[in-house]
Amino acid sequence: MNGALDIGWPQMGLCLVFVLAAGTASLALRLGLHRDLLWGTVRTFAQLALLGLVLRTIFELKAPWPILGIFWFMVFFAVLTIRGRVRERAVRYFDSTFLSMFLSYTLITVMLTAVIVRVDPWYEPRYFIPLGGMVIGNSMNAIAIALDRLFRDLRTNRNLVEMRLSLGATWREASDDIVRGAVKAGMIPSINAMMSVGIVFIPGMMTGQILAGSDVLLAVKYQMMVMLMLVGSTSVGSVLVVFLVLRRCFGRFGTLRL
């Protein structure tokens, strides 16, 4: 087989049956989700169509800077999404989250393309952008979980943290178990995914490669690389961001800002 079978536009229209089923459930059970479903469907079509157009242009690029620029934009948007989910106002964390995500994920993606897959040049957009996107997307979830947990636990354990500080602890000592809990919460989903991959679900990238006519063994190798890369990048991301942001949660005399 050479490439996936084409799907005709009438058949694409038929896919709306699935959304109609969801909409019917929403109306019948009065879930109030039908507007979101409609808006979500419109956005799915619009965003993916736009992505298709953009990717076509991007894949023609022959210089590293525009690719890194796109990567920069992807990370920026990921941090905006994290900010929307975490909703913390007392502590500034946008800049440190952005910087640590951008630097570490650029490094990880370059390592993947240049050292492991050995693409020449390393910034070949057909590899760099999708692989980088997977790193950013998964780590974005991990970082959002870790930061949310960090802020929530510092708030709910305020008296405990203050007690430790008042007995002479540094801000690091006073929040040690809370930090470990937050980093762990960020890391667990990608570890769980490693446990169930191939048994509970066939990952999207592997499915895509197989449908596109790629050799199954090659698809398996790519997926293995992705799983290992994700566990690494979510860990690096959670640790870096939590430690950088943690310092901002404490004032000059180690007092909690939250």
Binding site: N159, M163, S166, L167, G168, T170, F253, G254
Partner: peptide, 24 residues
Amino acid sequence: PYRSYRYPELRSKIVYLHQTPVLE
């Protein structure tokens, strides 16, 4: 001045206990 101390050092000299007891 307080500012000239490192805060863990200052708090090892001045210990404050909250109204509600907090233990580990």
